[in-house]
Every structure is written in C-alpha cells, then in structure tokens.
C-alpha cells in the first residue's frame, strides 16, 4: 500500500503540525509520500522530510499551485494517482475543496472528515454534526480521505526522507486568484492551540469581544467564536468553531456566552476540559462542561483575567 499525503502549505510554509498529525493517522497503512505543491515549496519540503514515518517528499513547483486553486492541484494529483492506494490530506478547507474534485476525476468516492482509520479500507467519520459516528468500508481501488487531526498526536521529527522534484503540469486555467485576506495573529493557531477561549452572542458586541482576547492572551490561548458571534460581526469567520467551522480538541476550552447548540458542540466536544460561563443555568453547554459558572460574563471574565 502506498499513501500520498497532500500537505497544507501557505505562502511557502508547511502546516507542520497538521501534516505530522495526519502522518500519525495513516502510518499503519503503508509507505507515506508527502506532496508539497506551491509556487516555491523547498523550505516546506525540507520540513516535511523531517517528519518520522515519511518515506518520500514530492515537490511540485508552479505558480498555478500557489493559491491552492482546486483545478490545477486536482489535475496534478490525478496525474500521480496510479501509484497510490490512498490519497489523503488533513481535513482543512483547502483539502475539502480539492479532494472531492480528484475523487470525481478518478471515479471514486471521497471519505470526508475521517476521525479514525480502522484499517486500510475501513474508516470512522462523524455524521449529523457529530451526533453519530459511522464506520464505512470502501470498495474503491483508490481511497480518498480527509483526516480530522484535532485529536491526534503529531508524529515526531528527526526523519530525513528523500526529496524528489516532479515536473510537467497541465493547468486547466478555469479560475484565477484575486486576493487573500488572511488575518495575521500572534496568537496560536486555533486548530493546534492547547487552550482556546471562545465567545458567543452573549458577548454582545465587537468592542466587548476584546475582553475574550484579553483572557486568551493571559492564557496564551487561541480565540474562537460561535457562528452567532461571527454572523453578528463580533469575530472574523476563521474563528468559527463547529459543524461548519473549525474542529478543535484543546486541553482546555472556555466557552463564554455560548449556549451550546449541537452545531457548536460538533466542533469542540472532544476538548479535554470544557469550561462554560453563561448566565442561563439551563444553557445546554452546561450538560457537557466539566466546570460551569452560572454568572454574568461582563463581571466574571475580567475577574478571571485578573485572577490568572
């Protein structure tokens, strides 16, 4: 069995953590080849080569791959596919954009958001916003899967896999990149942070959301948000946690002014410790919280920030 792992690269930089976690998920299946595709990916490829368990790194450099448009990256992977039994990627927005396109071109199904690799053919994945876990067995010749990495440990570094460059690409030129609005932040990345402080509609305004940020900074935490908080403009879309946002599993998740709708829980209920601060004692979030504080957030959050 040979696994091709599409790595996540942004501006030439490898998402090392997500890639190393995905390696952990698939290392029992077979030899792992990591694909680094982008405008310039030599630095990313060197980083990927150090992940233990990786047998080879493929480098595909072309401006067409620079902004991770689905069509050229899918065409590239389809051209490599015959050498592999599995094509996988961490379940990022980019991977979910690209993998189904590859699957259709190969006439196979895609298995999205795999939460456990049972064996080379069998996978577990959450359905119905995580209300059920389904085990599926694939009958396809090539298995395509995106892997949820939030609960996995990253494979260790110290490897030295060979790096090979591949050439000759065909860009279908169906779409073009215009711009990225990517927020730069000194805070840890939401999907790999060990502590997350999240705010919901209860926080009330964008100005008051700064209070969530202050608590997060005190804890060295990432900031998350509910969909209601994002829809109301308190927080940017990339902070959303849930069924349609990010799936996280930090050591500590503090939910502030969040009611605990099932779609929100879908993104955070695997956290080790959950704290809820909400003035409504009936809020469903308390049914899954390890520690609940029934109180007004405008008093408690500054008090908690000072107490730490």
């Amino acid at each position: 069995m040979n696994v091709l792992l599409l790595s996540e690269i942004n501006n030439g930089e490898l998402s090392l953590d997500a890639t190393a976690r995905a390696v952990t998920a698939v290392k029992g299946i077979g030899e792992i080849t990591v694909l680094c595709a982008g405008t310039t990916v030599s630095v990313a490829a060197e980083a990927a080569a150090r992940i233990e368990g990786v047998s080879k790194v493929l480098v595909a450099e072309d401006t067409a791959f620079g902004h991770r448009l689905a069509e050229p990256t899918a065409a590239l992977i389809v051209s490599l596919a015959q050498d592999y039994s599995h094509i996988v990627a961490p379940a990022t927005a980019d991977a979910k954009n690209i993998l189904p396109r590859i699957a259709a071109l190969l006439d196979v199904m895609v298995i999205s958001d795999v939460s456990r690799v049972v064996d080379a053919d069998t996978f577990e994945r959450p359905i119905y916003a995580g209300n059920a876990i389904q085990t599926v067995r694939s009958t396809d010749a090539i298995k395509l899967a995106s892997i949820r990495t939030s609960t996995l440990n990253a494979a260790s570094l110290g490897g030295a896999a060979p790096i090979e460059t591949i050439n000759g690409f065909d860009d279908p030129s169906l779409s073009e990149w215009v711009e990225d609005k990517i927020a730069e932040s000194d805070r840890p990345d939401l999907t790999s942070a060990s502590v997350i402080v999240s705010g919901g509609r209860g926080v009330g305004s964008e100005a008051d959301f700064a209070m969530i940020g202050r608590l997060a900074d005190k804890l060295g935490a990432a900031v998350g948000a509910s969909r209601a908080a994002v829809d109301a403009g308190f927080a940017p879309n990339d902070w959303q946690v849930g069924q349609t946002g990010k799936v996280v599993a930090p050591d500590l998740y503090i939910a502030i002014g969040i009611s605990g709708a099932i779609q929100h829980l879908a993104g955070m209920k695997d956290s080790r410790i959950i704290v809820a601060i909400n003035k409504d004692e009936e809020a469903p979030i308390f049914q899954i919280a390890d520690f609940g504080l029934v109180a007004d957030l405008f008093e408690t959050v500054p008090e908690l920030t000072d107490a730490l």
Partner: peptide
Amino acid sequence: RLEVVKTVEPDARKAGVIVSSVGELVAKL
C-alpha cells in the same frame, strides 16, 4: 462505493460540576 458497517452514538460526555465563583473555578482548573 462505501459500505456502511455500522452507525453508533458518539461517546457521551458527562456534565461536570457547577462552581460558585471565579476563585473556585481557578482552583479547580
């Protein structure tokens, strides 16, 4: 193309404790 082997409920999370103050929360954490 995918055979559904089984569909089960996810592991349930139990409700924990309600703390009465910020001080108690910090101590528990």
